[in-house]
Amino acid sequence: MARMKFLCDSERCIECNACVTACKNEHEVPWGINRRRLVTLNDGMPGERSVSMACMHCNDPPCAAVCPVDCFLQTADGVVLHSKDLCIGCGYCFYACPFGAPQFPRSTDFGSRGKMDKCTFCAGGPEADNTPEEYQKYGSNRLAEGKLPLCAEMCSTRALMAGDGDVLADIYAERVVRRGYGSGATGWTTAYGRRDAGSALAPGGAATGGS
């Protein structure tokens, strides 16, 4: 079973925001929700690098661990999804997420910040694949159509890659060898751990703290 991952090759990323816009377009994501975003490090100086970041679909996802209502699920290929029916908008997943992935429609908490929204790896939600309900809540489900995330498919420089982690690692390594430099796959250590233990939350995976 493929383990779906993202890899942003920051030597390639030019901060063009295609990935961000593609996501908005594909899922009609409303203003204020940034499922994906670009962060530039060392702005304006030699060594400046940009990284495109969304939910990394962690092994052992911290968001899922802290969710008070336990509304996350991880698919067999490692995609971390959540149920908007169950989410109470508490914001805890955002505190725990190492990458700032969870997004909320409202900034205050009085009552609720609204249902959390985050990158779905273009895999919809817990609803049945490609139903109108699924689209309405989570956007389209490209994975079920045999397509990969649009952000990665449209990345201008092939900096952002999505797919089976082993393959991504292989491509990345090949690039680094070919060009002779590369400063590691941003976020991989944090999201996937050094020993890739597989998906802790996936059916059969090691359970996480909490439940």
Binding site: F72, P126, E145
Partner: peptide, 20 residues
Amino acid sequence: MLKKTGSATPRGSLSRALAG
């Protein structure tokens, strides 16, 4: 942990495509 109901885990055609 929740489970995706119904035909969830096979992830439709993609997993098949990849498996292939």
